[in-house]
Simulated assay, not measured.
Amino acid sequence: MRKKFFLVAGALAACLGAPRARGWGCKGHQAVALIAEKHLTPEAQQLVETLLGANPIDPKLKRWCGNATRDLLMDAATWADDVRNERRNGPWHYIDIPRGKHKGSLEEYCGADGCVTRAIEQERAILKDQSADPLKRAEAIRYIIHFVGDMHQPLHVINNGDNGGNCVPVRYLHHEPLLNPERPEREDYSPNLHQIWDTEIVERDMEVSSPHRYADELDQKFRAESAAWEAEGVHVENWAWEVHERAESEVYDAFSTKIPIEPDVKPKGCSDNHHIGKRMLEKHLVAGEPYQLRAAKTAGRGLAEAGMRLAMILNDAAKEPRSAPETRNRASIDVGVFTAE
């Protein structure tokens, strides 16, 4: 049994060794989509149903989160992870904003291969273009659903020379961090900080809830704040900075042991950056019940925000654009009234 345990833990660690894992896991991403559904305008609902219904996901595609669901938006929520390796767009799922940075343009942190904020804006443009290929617009919806969720996972918008927390071993509740025995030279450990924020914290908070029930609970809990989020409008870069600040205070600074700001480097493995994996292991970081309770509140808020903001993006895309002649005529009328006065 001990050997089997180490093999399973090692396989998990190997999967998590690459930069960034799958933000929020299956249930978290599904909850974001279900929250968004509650706030869609009839026009946005029609747009989503038309594009996704007429351009279904390839039934031969391997779905990491299981078989397709009848809810089109919920089913689309994890598609971007299913095609991630095939399309080689892993960097679209996150942005490496270094710890200690505050506000300003994000372009310098968005590499040549892209990042989550740029990907959201690019896919928004495709979705809003009514002359674009319907298949591309359907894929844009699927990308947007997933990337808005990813961007609200704090460790997808911050880096501390640790691959977004993948190289920070932690003792999570009673689970001690174990080294991947198949590739010990990489210094990959599980559990690690990114892993627990991706799935463990949210799914433990959900307990017996389904994504549907959890979405209902979060939507109700943050109902009073959702109007303020909507009033702020769609500002993707602002959202990223907001979540970045949350990562500083609620992820890294929430430990009793101080985690210093590392050089702004992007290690290929946890043995890089002067053995960042081993150095973090030696800090004996503990994410116990107090950390879990605090993190669950932060994660729940992030999921609710992501759902509301996703709905805002889809509602905006479903608005009828003004035609050029109408705009010119209106401008002429306005000028005429102004002159008459």
Rank of each mutant, 00 (worst) to 15 (best):
G23T: 14
A227W: 09
K38G: 02
P325K: 13
D162S: 10
L40I: 06
C15E: 06
A140F: 09
P56M: 11
A44Q: 04
G307M: 03
G90F: 05
V170A: 05
I120V: 12
E187C: 14
M1S: 09
Y189D: 04
S210Q: 14
K128E: 14
I333W: 13
I259Q: 00
R309P: 12
V168A: 03
H93Q: 05
N160H: 08
H146D: 07
L314Q: 02
Q46T: 14
C65K: 11
R99H: 03
P98L: 07
F222A: 09
P260R: 07
R63Q: 04
M206L: 10
G90Y: 02
E200H: 06
H194I: 10
A306M: 08
F6G: 04
V157K: 03
V116G: 02
V148R: 01
K27A: 11
T41L: 13
E320Y: 11
E49H: 11
A247M: 14
A331V: 12
K38M: 04
R99W: 05
A247H: 08
T78V: 11
E250T: 12
L173K: 11
K3P: 05
Y109H: 09
E207I: 11
G53R: 08
E225H: 13
E187L: 05
D150C: 08
R294F: 05
S226E: 12
G90I: 11
R294P: 13
R87T: 07
E326Q: 15
L73V: 10
I35T: 13
L303T: 03
I95H: 03
I276M: 04
E43R: 04
I158L: 04
G164S: 11
K258Q: 14
V251R: 10
P267K: 04
P184V: 05
R99P: 00
N85T: 15
W197Q: 11
P134T: 07
P59K: 13
K319R: 10
E107H: 08
Y214S: 02
G302N: 10
A240W: 02
M1L: 10
P325N: 03
K268P: 07
K221T: 07
R186Y: 06
E86K: 12
R223S: 08
E123H: 12
I126C: 07
R142A: 01
L173H: 15
R246H: 13
W241G: 09
N89C: 15
P59N: 09
L106Y: 03
N85Y: 15
W197A: 06
E108L: 15
A317V: 07
E320A: 12
K136N: 15
G161Q: 06
E121H: 12
L193E: 00
V202R: 08
V148H: 06
Q30W: 02
L193P: 00
L127S: 00
G277A: 12
G233Y: 10
K258V: 12
N238M: 10
A125R: 05
L310S: 07
I201A: 02
V335W: 11
G111L: 12
R204M: 01
N89L: 13
G288L: 04
A140T: 01
M151F: 09
T257L: 09
A231P: 08
P98Y: 14
W79H: 01
W229P: 02
A9G: 00
L106N: 00
H175T: 02
R99N: 05
Y214Q: 05
I201P: 01
